[in-house]
């Protein structure tokens, strides 16, 4: 039988949940080994950052959707954390193969890298839920629909006070590292990329910076 929008949405969410390890709110033993191989062990920093960002996320989610929905925000955040750990592990495996190194101390102690990666994981989770809300018309009543729109990209950048440029940097590696992403989600991430490139990555100083880099061939063409 033809798939209804509601069934399609349920399947997407089920797939997202099913693809993630159930014990994934903690790093796997393999990921923990990568942490231990670092010159400076990033484990505590990562835990603290997750606690802090989890509180900010739940609070802002509640402000956008309503205080009675904070628990849903927390649930989405936890799902995002599982995806964040899973993708981080895949990225490190790929980097280990490519660079023949096991010490990723600098990368794993880079707060911007972690925040960007977590933001991307959460964008995937949110898009899976929100896309279904749009498709099945579940939020056709004005207030709910507005709340869902409020959570759309670039909402997550404001929540984590993350620059669009830094978020942009993780997208491609994220897609490479997570082969189970649906084509709708990949399309969504590509839309985010285009939105960043065409609109929100540009600042007043960007044009000055472009002018200062005339020697780079791409920049010459751009000018």
């Amino acid at each position: 039988p033809p798939q209804t929008p509601i069934r399609a949405a349920m399947n997407s969410i089920k797939m997202l949940r099913g693809d993630l390890p159930s014990s994934g709110d903690q790093p796997s033993s393999k990921l923990a080994t990568y942490f231990k191989n670092c010159t400076v062990d990033p484990t505590q920093g990562i835990q603290k950052r997750l606690e802090m960002l989890g509180q900010v996320f739940s609070q802002m989610f509640g402000e956008a959707v309503g205080p009675h929905c904070i628990a849903y925000g927390r649930e989405r955040f936890n799902l995002g954390v599982r995806l964040y750990y899973k993708v981080m592990e895949a990225m490190l495996e790929s980097e280990e193969k490519r660079l023949s190194v096991q010490n990723f101390s600098k990368l794993l102690n880079d707060s911007t890298f972690h925040t960007s990666l977590l933001a991307c994981a959460l964008e995937v989770v949110m898009a899976t839920y929100e896309e279904s809300s749009f498709k099945n018309g579940g939020c056709s009543h004005g207030e709910g629909e507005q709340a869902v729109r409020d959570l759309c990209f670039p909402w997550i950048l404001n929540v984590f006070d993350l620059s669009a440029f830094d978020f942009y940097k993780v997208i491609e590696s994220f897609i490479k590292a997570e082969p189970t992403l649906s084509k709708e989600i990949i399309k969504h991430l590509e839309t985010c990329e285009n939105f960043i490139m065409e609109k929100i990555a540009w600042r007043t100083v960007s044009f000055t910076n472009v002018s200062l880099n005339r020697r780079i061939p791409h920049v010459c063409r751009l000018l």
Binding site: M91, L107, F113, K169, S173, I175, K176, E190
Partner: peptide, 21 residues
């Protein structure tokens, strides 16, 4: 699958993007 355009070269990865070697 969706035809995503991968722009990174073979020798580039997340480490280079965050300035780590």
């Amino acid at each position: 699958s969706h035809d995503y355009h991968f722009g990174l070269e073979e020798h580039e990865g997340i480490s280079e993007l965050f300035d780590c070697d």
